[in-house]
Amino acid sequence: MNAQTIDYAKLQKHVDAHPYPLVFATISGAHLYGFPSADSDFDLRGVHLLPLEQVVGLDPGEETVEKECIHDGLEMDLVTHDAKKFFGLMLKKNGYVLEQLLSPLVVQTTPEHEELKAIAKDCITKFHAHHYLGFAATQWKLFRKEDPPKVKPLLYVYRVLLTGIHLMQTGEVEANLLTLNETAKLPYIGELVERKLAGPEKGRLDAADLEFHEQEYERLVADLEVAMEKSTLPEQATGKAKLNELLVKLRVGN
C-alpha cells in the first residue's frame, strides 16, 4: 500500500548538506509507519557529532539541528541530535529515538551506527510502555478534536499502541503498522490505510465509526497496560556504560 517510492539518492544529497558529521540518518514518520501518502514529507532523523571544541568550549554547539525545506521536489523535515543528547534520550525510556535508530529505512550509516543499534537492546525497559500510552492519548485527543474526525491521527493511535504491545511482548521495536497488524490481525487497519491514502475526501469518519474506534482504543490501551505488567523486560536500562564508551570513542576518535 506504499503510495510513495523513496528516492534515497535525493535524500542523501540533503543529508550531505548537514553542517556536522552524521553517525546515521534514517527515515521516520509515515514512511516508517507504513502509510505514506503521495504528498507525505520525508521525516529524516539522526545523530550528529559536534566537534570537540564546541563540546568543551564556552560556546556550545547545536545539540539539535532542525531543517525544513523542499529539495529536488521532495519536502523534507530533518532533525538530528548531538550524540550525547541522543544517548541520554536512549536512557530515558524514549520510544521515538529507538524507532529512529532502528529504522530499516537507512539513508546514511556508519560502523558506530551498528554499535549503537547493538546497545539499544540494553536500553529497552518495561516502562517504555508509558511513552506509547502517552503518545496514544495525545493522538486520540487530536483525533477527537476534528469534526468530522480524520483517519490520519487514528492510524497514529493504532500504530503506537500496537508498537507498545509488541515491544512489551517481544522486546523488539517495530514501527510499521502493516507489519504489526500481521500479528494483531485488526480487520479494519487495511481499510483505514486505504482511506488515508485516497485523500482528504475519503479520510474522515462518521459517528458510527467513532463509537467503534473509541471502544477499540480503550481495549488496546488496556491490552498495553496488561502487557506492561506481564512483560519480562527489565525495569532499568543497563546500556549506560556501553553508551559512555561509544560516546568517548566518537569524541576523541579512538
Rank of each mutant, 00 (worst) to 15 (best):
M1D: 05
C123A: 08
F24C: 05
H130T: 12
G61S: 05
K150F: 14
L91N: 00
V97D: 03
T238I: 04
P19Y: 03
H128K: 01
G57M: 04
G46N: 02
A136F: 06
H81N: 15
T5E: 15
S37Q: 12
E174S: 12
T26D: 03
G253C: 00
P153C: 00
N254P: 13
A30S: 15
D223A: 15
A227C: 01
G73R: 10
A9H: 08
K67A: 13
D39F: 07
L44Q: 08
E229A: 14
N254K: 13
D43I: 09
T170A: 08
L180R: 09
Y33D: 08
I189D: 01
L155T: 01
R45V: 11
G203Y: 10
A83Q: 09
E62W: 11
R144A: 10
Q100I: 11
Y33P: 00
C69A: 15
F212K: 14
L180V: 08
P36H: 09
V15W: 10
L101M: 05
E214F: 09
L155N: 00
V79W: 08
T232C: 10
G253K: 01
E191Y: 08
M228C: 11
L89K: 04
P200E: 14
K10F: 12
R204D: 00
P19I: 05
A129Y: 01
D82Y: 03
Q236H: 14
K117D: 04
K92T: 09
A30P: 09
V56S: 13
D59M: 13
K196P: 00
H213L: 00
T138P: 00
L186V: 05
Y188H: 07
V157D: 01
E53P: 04
P21L: 03
P104R: 00
K196W: 14
D7I: 04
H213G: 02
V221T: 08
L101S: 00
A241E: 14
R45F: 03
E62R: 14
W140M: 09
H18Y: 07
A118T: 11
S231Q: 01
A241L: 10
K126Q: 14
Q4N: 12
E115N: 07
L98M: 11
K145P: 03
K117S: 11
L49P: 10
L50S: 08
A17S: 13
R204T: 06
Y8H: 06
E225T: 10
E214A: 08
D59H: 13
E214N: 12
E174P: 01
K10W: 06
Y158S: 02
K126R: 15
Q215T: 15
E146Q: 11
E146K: 08
P51F: 06
K185R: 12
T163C: 05
E115T: 05
E75M: 15
F35E: 01
E225I: 13
D77T: 09
G190Y: 10
